[in-house]
């Protein structure tokens, strides 16, 4: 199997010496291609920090992060932008759709930066939105969509450039249980189609739908590989 994510003694420190916060503390972690895993842990344990490093939005203070075998620290801005554009799809808890753009235009945005011509953009955006069940909402602005629909637009945007890695930081955190189910079904389907999915969640019902749980505490991975099915006992033990 191919390793897609590898953390080698990764630390992330915020602040200066006396106000120092170690968001990540000497983390070693690997995720293989095709995995579907959930990152869990108490609030402030470093889950988002880890996701941002994985998504090339943030750089470790020390240690190395290898994405698909490449040491990200060696990449310049252009190369990082290219990776964020092509290899990674990122879904945020707050959706982060551009309010002045329609669903379609939001989904087309990554393809604009990929230099894909307009007709192809429209076609692929339509396909992606159809895939998340929004074929009839192409021209709606974000404020004309429900939270669940907005998150599905965000997912369509994340997958439209056919990334190898889909990252989602509490994607269901702002959704009710019904739409959570819908979104999780989409993730499962995407994973089944070969995309590696890593998501942060604090809901064990959500984590149960993945195939691996990584448990964080105090900026460290204390359980790198929990089984989602017997999470209940481990959760109690881990906290």
């Amino acid at each position: 199997m191919k390793t897609i994510i590898r953390f080698d003694h990764v630390s992330k420190v915020y602040g200066s010496e006396n106000t120092e916060v170690r968001a990540l503390s000497d983390v070693n972690l690997t995720v293989e291609a095709g995995e579907y895993c959930a990152i869990m842990g108490p609030s402030g344990s470093g889950k988002s920090t880890a996701m941002n490093v994985i998504g090339c939005l943030d750089r470790p203070t020390s240690g190395s992060y290898y994405l698909d075998g490449v040491d990200v620290a060696q990449l310049n801005d252009q190369e990082l932008a290219h990776i964020r554009n092509r290899k990674i799809g990122f879904v945020f808890q707050q959706f982060h759709l551009l309010p002045q753009l329609s669903a379609m235009e939001n989904v087309m945005l990554p393809m604009v930066y990929a230099g894909i011509p307009l007709p192809q953009r429209q076609q692929r955006a339509t396909e992606a939105l159809t895939r998340v069940g929004l074929a009839n909402r192409l021209n709606n602005r974000p404020n004309q969509l429900s939270g669940g629909q907005q998150q599905r637009v965000a997912i369509a945007r994340a997958i439209v450039n056919q990334p190898v890695l889909l990252l989602a930081d509490e994607p269901t955190g702002a959704l009710d249980s019904h739409t959570t189910q819908e979104v999780m079904a989409i993730f499962a389907e995407l994973n089944a189609s070969g995309i590696t999915v890593v998501m942060v969640t604090h809901e064990s019902e959500v984590a149960r739908l993945t195939r691996r749980v990584v448990w964080f505490r105090d900026g460290q991975v204390i359980h790198p590989n929990l089984s989602p099915t017997n999470l209940a006992q481990v959760t109690v033990a881990a906290v």
Binding site: Q78, H82, N85, L98, Y113, R157
Partner: peptide
């Protein structure tokens, strides 16, 4: 907006 654009693949030059 700028952060989002960068997150989905905009370079500094873009």
């Amino acid at each position: 907006e700028i952060g989002l654009r960068k997150a989905i693949g905009a370079s500094q030059d873009d």
